[in-house]
Simulated scan of single mutants.
Amino acid sequence: MVKKVFRAMGRTKEMQQDSAETVGLKVLAWLAANEELFPVFLGSSGISGAELMSRAGDTEVLSAVLDFVTMDDAWVMACAQETGLTQDAPMRARAALPGGAQINWT
């Protein structure tokens, strides 16, 4: 019985990560289409456009995209409005990707 629960938990986590990656790709597409913000992302992340294109599906890259966009509420709201995502989707997606666990500062 315990093994079945752990297997089910693993599948649930994978589905959550799959959904998070899909959200990350939508946010990346929105960011890449934003002529003012995209160069800021490239400059702050240090990734080149060519490397970003070749690694767009990597969770590390998607995490960086989500971290960047969620730094500013206005960016999150604009992204949500233009992509049809909910305003909390980028933050929830980031939390579901590796390294996205909420930090406890106490």
Rank of each mutant, 00 (worst) to 15 (best):
K3C: 04
K4F: 10
V5P: 01
V5R: 12
F6Y: 12
F6D: 07
R7V: 15
A8E: 11
A8V: 15
M9R: 15
M9I: 15
M9D: 12
G10K: 13
G10Q: 07
R11N: 14
R11L: 14
R11T: 14
R11H: 10
R11W: 10
K13E: 11
K13L: 11
E14A: 13
Q16A: 13
Q17Y: 02
Q17P: 06
Q17F: 03
D18E: 10
A20G: 06
V23A: 00
L25E: 14
K26P: 04
V27F: 05
L28S: 03
A29K: 08
A29C: 04
A29P: 08
A29L: 04
W30P: 09
W30E: 01
W30Y: 11
W30H: 04
L31S: 00
L31A: 02
L31G: 03
A32E: 12
A32W: 05
A32Y: 06
A32P: 09
N34V: 02
N34P: 02
N34K: 07
E35I: 09
E36M: 10
E36L: 12
P39H: 04
V40E: 14
F41Y: 11
G43M: 03
S45K: 03
S45F: 04
S45G: 07
S45M: 02
G46I: 08
G46Y: 01
G46N: 03
G46Q: 03
I47C: 02
I47V: 14
A50F: 07
L52D: 09
M53H: 12
M53C: 09
S54V: 11
R55L: 07
R55M: 04
A56I: 10
A56S: 15
G57M: 12
G57A: 15
G57H: 11
D58Q: 10
T59K: 05
V61D: 00
S63H: 06
S63Y: 04
A64T: 06
A64W: 01
A64F: 01
V65H: 02
L66M: 03
F68I: 00
V69R: 00
V69H: 02
T70F: 01
M71W: 10
D72Y: 04
D73K: 13
D73L: 11
W75H: 13
W75A: 06
V76L: 05
V76P: 04
A78Y: 01
C79G: 05
C79D: 06
A80Y: 08
A80W: 06
A80F: 09
Q81M: 11
Q81P: 05
E82K: 03
T83R: 03
G84A: 03
L85F: 08
Q87K: 08
Q87T: 12
D88N: 05
A89F: 02
P90L: 03
A93H: 02
A93T: 07
R94G: 00
A96E: 06
A96L: 04
P98M: 00
P98A: 01
P98K: 00
G99K: 00
G99F: 00
G99I: 02
A101W: 05
A101L: 06
Q102D: 06
Q102T: 12
I103Q: 05
W105N: 14
T106H: 11
